[in-house]
Design a protein around this nucleic acid. Structure first.
Length: 226
DNA sequence: GCGACAG
DNA sequence: ATCTTGTCGC
């Protein structure tokens, strides 16, 4: 595990980043949510399990659900999350039959010291439209935001706006939105807001997380029995 | 040198 | 990220 080498790889991927809209975000219909869990998060190696859920934004109905698994021997290291989660995500991605307009990842996009958070990493290697949506901040600073639904404020990093802090509901901590790849700052925020369905997290990501909890429980039961 | 640090 | 009951507050 050579972190200096991985940093260089991230910088190489960052050269391929595109922060302009590849699609007209007003016409987005199919949005995918991607999340990953681990059989034993404290052990290495361990089994990583990823889920991709595709929703039709017109009625939030589930269009497709796929899972992927991969034995992984890379620990969680801040700013290197992608190297832990991308392998199993790709296993799931290969099974997808539909072509979502946008992918939302659980984590940051360009709100990262080398602009290569997991959402950007995924977006670049698959050349898809991706957006990062984290539950906490990895990098950057933001000013206080009003305590009211859908209040947001820019997050600055390295002297520029790199994303937004978005408070979905009153008295709820904000989520952090940033472009992954092939999308602009404003459109990223727009897609996230359109993907929210009464909960703090965008519906595709929330469902992917819920499905993983069930999947993991079932897997643990199978191991326990036969 | 010190603190911060997605999941 | 995972484990896990009650508890506080909108």
């Amino acid at each position: 595990m050579d972190l200096e080498y991985l940093k260089k790889y991230q910088l190489k991927l960052a050269k391929k980043l595109k922060l302009e809209d590849k699609i007209d975000v007003k016409n987005v219909k199919f949005v995918a949510g991607i999340d990953t869990t681990f059989l034993d998060p404290y052990k290495e190696p361990t089994l990583a399990i990823s889920c991709i859920v595709v929703l039709n934004l017109e009625d939030f109905s589930v269009v497709e659900t796929v899972f992927g698994q991969k034995e992984i021997d890379f620990p969680y290291i801040p700013t290197f999350l992608a190297f832990r989660e991308i392998p199993s995500i790709m296993e799931a991605y290969q099974k997808l039959k539909s072509s979502p307009d946008v992918f939302i990842l659980d984590g940051q996009g360009i709100l990262h010291p080398r602009k290569m958070g997991i959402a950007s990493h995924f977006g670049v290697i698959t050349d898809t439209v991706s957006v990062g949506c984290g539950k906490s901040l990895l990098y950057g600073k933001y000013t206080q935001l009003e305590n009211k639904p859908m209040a947001y404020s820019p997050v600055y990093a390295d002297g520029e706006v790199r994303g937004y802090a978005l408070r979905v509901k009153k008295n709820t901590n904000p989520i952090f939105v940033s472009p992954g790849n092939n999308i602009s700052l404003n459109s990223s925020l727009y897609v996230i807001i359109k993907s929210i369905n009464g909960y703090k997290l965008p519906e595709p990501v929330r469902l992917a997380h819920n499905f993983l909890t069930e999947y993991r429980k079932r897997l643990l039961q199978e191991v326990k029995n036969g």
